[in-house]
């Protein structure tokens, strides 16, 4: 089956699963929470932070979405298809190919399920940090936690997982070479701030 048809089916299935009232209600509540914290500049409470982490890990990360195939992954075989840079494919697979298979930021042999698990762990890690900033006129949340056992040959000390909660998609998950400085290097430009600093 062509990749595009797979994606159409995934979208249809996801709209049934993700279109339910409870999830939509949660999405709106999280979006409102981030907007409130971002616009007011107030601190996030422990309960709100827990709610945010749970939502991002359990709902945003799991929601089917698509991303473009990285140009470096062009020519690779994935589930019976030869990939072409710029084509669309499920986001999790696209990011797995880029950061695990090509860049080797995770240990060799890491499966796509383990990659997903490591991102969810990072988001929910209570010692991890949560950073909030504006990007393309919307609020972006970046979760960061130590990579520990997930550090690959070209990996680093931290995993970052980025989200646009108001739009709902998760963006990417990788191991930035500069660690925490990667997060804060544009702090002045984006007026970003830590909602919770990593411990």
């Amino acid at each position: 089956m062509p990749v595009a048809l797979d994606l159409k089916m995934a979208r249809r299935q996801s709209s049934v699963r993700w279109g339910c009232a409870v999830v939509e209600e949660q999405a709106e509540a999280i979006s409102a929470l981030i907007r409130d914290i971002g616009e007011s500049g107030r601190d996030i409470t422990d309960e709100e932070l827990q709610r945010l982490r749970t939502y991002l890990a359990a709902v945003s990360l799991a929601r089917p979405s698509v991303a473009r195939v990285d140009d470096g992954a062009g020519g690779l075989m994935w589930e019976g298809h030869i990939l072409k840079g710029g084509d669309w494919m499920p986001r999790l697979a696209a990011k797995y190919l880029k950061h695990v298979m090509l860049n080797r930021e995770w240990p060799d042999g890491t499966t796509i399920e383990e990659y997903a698990e490591s991102l969810a762990e990072a988001v929910q890690d209570p010692t991890g940090g949560v950073y909030l900033e504006r990007d393309e006129d919307t609020w972006k949340v970046t979760c960061v936690a130590r990579s520990h056992r997930w550090t690959g040959r070209h990996g680093a000390a931290y995993i970052v997982v980025a989200f646009l909660p108001a739009k709902d998609p998760w963006l990417t998950g990788f191991q930035p070479d500069r660690g925490l400085r990667y997060i804060t290097q544009d702090q002045l430009r984006t007026s970003g701030r830590w909602l919770r600093r990593p411990r």
Binding site: S65, V66, P169, L171
Partner: peptide, 12 residues
């Protein structure tokens, strides 16, 4: 099947 949010997420 690509939504405006996918396009935004792709750029960001």
């Amino acid at each position: 099947f690509v939504t405006p949010d996918d396009l935004l997420a792709d750029r960001v």
